[in-house]
Nucleic acid binder design. Structure first.
Lengths: 140, 140
DNA sequence: CTTGCACCTCTAGTCGCTAGAGGATGTAGG
DNA sequence: CCTACATCCTCTAGCGACTAGAGGTGCAAG
């Protein structure tokens, strides 16, 4: 197993160099060994960890949730109930966010459609913003 | 026109007291007159501004965009092309975000469904996170 | 041997607030 | 008039998850 520099790890994992260092700083990633010249030198296994973190971040999991998921991964005998709970919580969040964004989308569409491209005092965008009562969708 | 304390303005606009002061600090809201004892005293017109800002924030507009929209509102003779452009840009953002969240939702659902509630080493949640290749939806 | 890139640490900045310290003001009741 | 208490004031620091930059060292190629 050959050692990998931080730059190479970044390239292979898709996590930026400063972000890798940041993850190490907050204890999400354990500190790798160092070269003679004090440079971080990673092993292939660390790339899996980075990929895991990256994927989880892309799915919108918070650092703390990822910390828990990583602990779970290290302990394969454990029940996966916590992992399931974390994923389910995130799913509910995502569903709520989608609903709220759909409402926003509808309202923005109305604003944009109503805009006659004339002067500001006839602009529906400004008008709707100024008067919440003009929202068709009372989502907020 | 009766003067309004910051607390009353907060109650009526739904924007929290520290947030109002913050908006003043960053120049989004002009500084109101002060009472004898140096307390902020708002006029009814200021409530409209606050409501405008609040509504725009709820729609996810950034502070800088809101700054521009407020300038436009102050200048009713101007063309509303900029307002339109800002709203359209926001709409596109929202649409992209919805698409990406829908992909996420699908992936999370797969993870959660696949979880047999057994041990971690058979948990699909952990497994999928660890191996991006197992994503059904190559959204990222 | 020098050039130039990648690496190191450290601090500070981003966004949009929010929390808290420590003190002044305003108001209602006694 | 005094006291109690809510509300106000300013100021600084903190949140999450990075990102940017300064100022310096390591390393490999030509």
């Amino acid at each position: 197993m050959k050692k990998i520099t931080i730059g190479e790890a970044a390239r292979q994992s898709g996590v930026k160099v400063p972000t890798i260092r940041y993850y190490e700083g907050i204890g999400l990633l354990s500190a790798p060994s160092r070269s003679e010249g004090n440079q971080r030198s990673y092993e292939p296994a660390d790339l899996n960890r980075l990929a895991f973190i990256r994927h989880a971040r892309e799915l919108g999991f918070e650092i703390d949730a990822i910390r828990t998921l990583l602990h779970l991964q290290d302990d394969p005998d454990q029940s996966c109930a916590s992992a399931d709970a974390i994923a389910k919580a995130r799913l509910i969040e995502v569903e709520q966010r989608i609903r709220s964004l759909n409402a926003l989308k509808a309202e923005l569409e109305q604003m944009v459609e109503g805009c006659g491209h004339g002067r500001v005092d006839q602009c529906r965008v400004i008008e709707v913003l100024a008067d919440h009562g003009k929202c068709a969708h009372p989502h907020h």
